[in-house]
C-alpha cells in the first residue's frame, strides 16, 4: 500500500471517532437499503454507499485515506479490502461488479435488477460485520 501513497492514497493517523461515524453511517444506509417499499435503484444506492463507507472505515483504520481528487477512488477502496479487511478475492470480484453496475446506471439510466440489489445488500451486511469486528479487534490491541 505504501507504493500507492501520493498516487491514490495518503497516510493518516486513524481518527477513531471519524471511523466510528463511518460505521454508523454504513449501518444506517444498510438499514435504508432493506426498506422494500422504496425503488430498487434507491435501495441499491444505499447498499452501495454502505459498502463504500465500510471500506473507507477499514482503509482509515489501516492508516490511509484515498485522495478523492483522483479518479477511481471507489475502485481503490474496494480493491484494497483484501489488505485492509482481509476480504477474499471472490468477494472483491463481486464488489467490483457491483461498482460497475452502479457506474453504468449513473450514466445510462439503466434500471437495476432485483438480483443486483439483493447481492448488494448481502455484501454490505457481510462487509459491515467483518470491518466492525476487525476494527474493534484493532482498537483492543
Amino acid at each position: 500500500m505504501k507504493k500507492l501513497v501520493g498516487i491514490s492514497l495518503q497516510e493518516i493517523t486513524p481518527d477513531w471517532e471519524m471511523i466510528s461515524r463511518l460505521l454508523t453511517a454504513a449501518a444506517r444506509n444498510l438499514s435504508d437499503a432493506n426498506i422494500v417499499e422504496i425503488s430498487l435503484e434507491t435501495r441499491f444506492d444505499a447498499a452501495y454507499k454502505s459498502i463504500l463507507q465500510s471500506a473507507n472505515a477499514a482503509l482509515q483504520a489501516s492508516g490511509y485515506r484515498t485522495l478523492t481528487s483522483k479518479p477511481g477512488h471507489h475502485q481503490t477502496m474496494i480493491q484494497l479490502l483484501t489488505k485492509t479487511a482481509g476480504v477474499d478475492r471472490e468477494t472483491i470480484i463481486v464488489l467490483d461488479a457491483l461498482r460497475r453496475q452502479r457506474n453504468v446506471v449513473d450514466y445510462s439510466g439503466d434500471i437495476i435488477p432485483a438480483s443486483a440489489v439483493s447481492e448488494c445488500v448481502k455484501q454490505a451486511t457481510c462487509l459491515l460485520n467483518q470491518v466492525s469486528q476487525r476494527i474493534s479487534d484493532q482498537k483492543a490491541d
Binding site: 470480484i93 463481486v94 461488479a97 457491483l98 438480483s115 443486483a116 447481492e119
Partner: peptide
C-alpha cells in the same frame, strides 16, 4: 442464477 455467481463466472 444469482448476481454473484454470474459476476464470478464472467470475471
Amino acid at each position: 442464477a444469482g448476481f454473484a455467481a454470474v459476476a464470478e463466472a464472467l470475471y
